[in-house]
Amino acid sequence: MKIKEASINDNEILTEITKKSKSYWGYSEKQILKWNDNLTISAAYIENNCVFELINNNEIIGYYSYLVKEEKNVILDNLFILPEYIGKGFGKYLMTDFLNRMKNGKFEKITLNSDPNAENFYLKIGFKKIGEFKTSIKNRFMPIMEMSL
């Protein structure tokens, strides 16, 4: 198992992982189609942002990406794993790699908008919920989370 920087040629695989992972939480195919633009990882996105993929047995099974918001603040933009690997420690493995990169850099704070289904995952890692915002789905709110380094 290894983590490496994503190649712009991996954009379709990363988009597939994103959509499959999101679907795992029970969102309908119709809803996934509504979110298509937000769930698509373009070659330009990979080229312009920090994207790292998790490879297991020569297969990309997950990834994370982050954006540098300000000099000392980072946004964890994506963290997705193929459904068959969810709940088996691979997400934690990705998060550990991400946090190590952040702690070894000049960053002081990480923020993210969590899917409601992933909120507990981030809480266990050490993030704190600092707010939430209403989504396009009735009675669904996205937690806004933060961690100081």
Rank of each mutant, 00 (worst) to 15 (best):
N56L: 14
N56D: 11
N57C: 10
E59D: 14
I60W: 06
G62L: 11
Y66A: 04
L67W: 12
L67Q: 11
V68I: 12
K69Q: 13
E70N: 11
E71K: 13
K72H: 15
N73T: 14
V74D: 01
V74K: 01
I75K: 09
I75M: 07
I75W: 05
D77F: 07
D77R: 03
N78Q: 10
N78F: 10
L79W: 02
L79S: 02
F80D: 01
F80C: 01
I81T: 00
I81M: 06
I81E: 00
L82P: 03
P83S: 01
I86E: 03
I86L: 07
G87L: 07
K88N: 11
K88A: 10
G89K: 08
G91L: 06
Y93I: 14
Y93A: 14
F98D: 01
L99W: 04
L99F: 04
L99C: 03
K103P: 02
K103N: 15
K103M: 10
G105T: 09
G105N: 08
K106S: 13
K106C: 15
K106E: 15
K106N: 15
F107W: 10
E108M: 14
K109Q: 12
K109D: 08
I110A: 05
T111G: 08
L112T: 02
N113R: 02
P116Q: 09
N117A: 09
E119H: 02
N120W: 02
N120Y: 07
N120G: 03
F121Q: 05
Y122F: 04
